[in-house]
Structures are given as C-alpha cells and as structure tokens.
Design a protein around this nucleic acid. Structure first.
Lengths: 255, 255
DNA sequence: GCGATCAGCGGCACG
DNA sequence: CGTGCCGTTGATCGC
C-alpha cells in the first residue's frame, strides 16, 4: 500500500459521496496546500492526510506533530474539482469569517469513505471544575474556618473559581489551577481581587491554589499581597482524592 | 465501503508495519477508548478514526469537531494486542508524564498504512510577529514622533512586543494583538508597564495595539491609565495592508 | 530542560 | 451572538 495511485475522478467521487451521505472521507496523497482567512499560508509539496468529516471539519495532517497543519472547523463547504494536473479539494467557510483552504493533489495514494455512527460523549475526570467541586466540600483543608460562598462567581470581568469567607469574616477569592501556575494565573487572580475589593468596598484576600508555581509567579504573587497554597494533588492520578492541602505561606493581604 | 470488516490480525499487522517502517497508519472501526494521564476519560462505543503517525502521534477522531477526542503527542510507544473480542491498540508515554491511551476495537472497517514523504514547512503570513515587524518600520503610524527602541524586549516576567520612546522622551511599551483584545491583553500590558516602570524608575506609557477591543477590556484599560490604538488591519484579509504602511508592504499573493 | 507566550488556537458555558 | 476562560491545550522561542 502506498505505491498505488487512485484516479482523480475516483477520488472526487469518494469525497462527493462522503458529503452526500454524511460520511467520513479520507484522502492520502502528494499535495500543495493554500489557506487564506484569518491569516494566510502556503505549504509546498509533500504527502499528507486529508480528513473530511460529515460536519464540514477539514483537516490536513503532515507526518509529524499532533496539530493539523491546515484546518477548518465545522461548517465548511467542501467541493472538488478535477484538472489536468491536479485534483483540487476546497473548503470554504463564511460564518465567522471568509476562509478558504485549497488542497492541490498531484497524486492520490488512497481515497476512502466511511460510515461513522457514534452517539457517545467523552466522560472526563480530573478537570478543574471537578477539583473545585471537591474543594468546595471542605475548604477547611485550605484553612481552618474557611467557608464557601459561591462557585464560579461572575465578576464583571471574568469569574472567580471559588468565593469564600475566612474565619475573620474576610472575603477570599480562590483561583484554582490543575497544573503548575505561571504569571498569567497570578495576574488573573490579582484582577479578580481588585475587582471584587472595589465592588464590595472591602479588603479581599486572594489565594492561588495549584500543585506548584513558577519562581517568577511566586515573586509577583508575594508582591501583590496574594497567597499560595500547594495542592497535594498528584497530576496523573486525577481520580485519587486530594490528600489534604499543605499551607505554604500566608500573607496579610494589602487590600 | 464501510460495510466490510478487517480481521484483527490483519489490522495488527498494519499497525506494526507502520511502526516498523516509519509510516502512517489509519484505522477506522467501532471502539471504546480509555485514557489515563494528566486526566482520565472514557469514551464508550462508537465508530472512530485512529491516526498513528510515524513520530508516535496518536489521534482518535469522532465524526464531528476539529479536535481529537483522545490523543497523545509525539513520542508515544504504540503496541497492539489481539484478543478474542477486541483488538487493543495502546499508546504509552512516560516523558513529561506517564500517560496511556487504549483503544478497544470491536470491529475494524479499515486499516491502511501509507508512506508519507514530506520535507515541507508551512509558510505563514499574518502572525503577530510579522505585524510587529511591519509596525517597527514606522511607529509614527501610531503616534507622531514615536521611535522604536527594541522588539521583543525581555522583561523579567514576559516580554514586551515593542519598546519605544515618544516625542517627549517617555518610554512606551506596546502590546500587539492580531485579534480582538480582551481582558488578558490589558492585564498583560499592565504587568509589563509596572515592571518596566519599576526597573527604569520612570513613568512608562502602555499602548495596546489591536484591531479591536472588548468593552470590558477598554474600561479596565482606561482605569489602568493605558492607551488603545486601533490597528487598521482587516482581520480575515491579511493580504490587506496596515493603513499608512501600504507603500512598504508586499502583497501576500505574490507567491 | 523549564518558562513564558502565541495560536488561523478550539471548545464550552453563561449573559 | 459575544465575552471570558479552560484545555490531557499544542507549538514556538528564549534562557
């Protein structure tokens, strides 16, 4: 396999059948790819895999990397055209923006169409939301006397993962990260705390809750009067429950 | 096509050949998928496309959406196992983290292996970096007398897209966004300006330069004492020029 | 290697 | 619809 060649007209028929019957089309062949839309790109000759899904999703994959080198989301209109020297497969979208991908096949190794019956949805465990649910059950793990007020509380600008009140009655905004926290996490929390402090006209503490934090982020966090709590949470064992939380440092908030 | 079935042993042979010979393997069939690693997931029965690239990339696609429902990046070790009721294709990675995907095929519609010779790299136009290059040619477009100092200047925390000095000799940090700027863009610029002001011990202006900005972001920007400059740059038509820089730009469609 | 940021980010949930 | 933000984010570049 991989040596033979499929005629352009046969490949065209395959793509059109997929579109007509709501099936998946797969093409493998030597091609050039052009894109014009939010940006513009050109990919010169090489062997690629083209995936066309029933919903209009259009993916051009090279032989390496996870991400498609050119793509178009659901809603694309796919058309084919047979020329003398190339089979052109085009995907056009106008919805959020006018976008076009054109794949110029010089030769086609394979073209297939497949029925794809699938009503299942992914069940995911270990998301940040799930972590928040667990934490909400007992914020005392973070700090004695910490009482939950609200989860996913909308601030005018963004939303706070967990809003709570500490033993002294102070508002506490908790930002949760399921992985190593960086500068962005700190600035995000900082923004929430400032927003909230202004709205409520009272001092608000901010706690960044993550399995780890970068050195830069920790420096900035301290300078902003925010706090960090290390989640004793094994990345890679998401189903395991949180083993309790170690308080690393506590600073008096300046707000 | 799509009705026939391929034997597990033949499918296994196809996958192993792909691994051995550095080729692309494609499998289509009815399967259940399990993932355990940074999170955990289960996807119950349905028809899916499995893509196995020579570099170890492992993609499970459903019939809709752009993103793979389960995946593993380059470096995965792929193995297969034939059982009585299922063909199991497994991808394991230990590198950044121990991760495992298992695909349990109940039936296989198609299995193919393809040579994928490809030495080409994508040429992309309209990236933020390219925009910065264009702007650096004439910052006077943003404001008369604005002189470029440095591009991609590293601050301790992050990097400023463009650093300049205005007609009055004041430092100006310019944050460039190629699309609608949101709250994050404002906080990011704010962080840079504060950092820079502290380091240089002088007042620093901050200009957010984007085709548009959300209302919330603009409010926060004003409250932070930052400025906004609308890039006259058509999103979705990157071959169009930035207004005022037209003479110096080349068209995208020249290749 | 880690760290920070961009991405044609995609996808989701909420107003 | 847009806005905001998480993501098994991925990919890139700089240190």
């Amino acid at each position: 396999m991989g040596e033979q060649t499929i005629s352009f007209s046969e490949a065209k028929r395959v793509v059109e059948q997929a579109i007509d019957e709501g099936k998946l089309a797969l093409l493998v062949g030597n091609c050039v790819v052009r894109y014009d839309g939010r940006a513009a790109s050109k990919l010169s000759e090489g062997d690629r895999l083209l995936v066309i899904k029933p919903d209009g999703t259009f993916l051009v994959h090279q032989s390496t990397k996870m991400a498609a080198i050119n793509y178009q989301g659901p809603g694309a209109r796919v058309s084919t055209q047979v020329g003398d020297e190339a089979l052109v497969v085009k995907a056009e979208r106008s919805k959020p923006l006018k976008e076009t991908i054109e794949v110029f096949f010089k030769s086609v190794q394979f073209a297939g169409v497949f029925k794809m019956k699938d009503d299942s949805k992914l069940k995911l465990f270990g998301s940040e939301r799930e972590l928040a649910n667990l934490l909400m059950q007992d914020l005392g793990l973070i700090e004695p006397g910490l009482m939950p007020l609200k989860q996913e509380s909308d601030v005018r600008k963004g939303s706070i993962d967990i809003l709570a009140r500490d033993a002294l009655g102070k508002l506490v905004a908790i930002e949760l990260k399921r992985r190593n926290a960086g500068l962005d996490a700190v600035t995000q929390l900082h923004r929430y705390v400032r927003e909230l402090a202004e709205r409520k006209d009272e001092r608000v503490r901010g706690i960044l809750c993550a399995p780890s934090i970068t050195a830069n982020a920790y420096t900035m966090l301290e300078k902003s009067g925010l706090e960090f709590f290390k989640l004793d949470y094994e990345i890679g064992n998401p189903s395991a429950k949180i083993k309790g939380l170690q308080k690393k440092q506590k600073t008096i908030s300046q707000f």
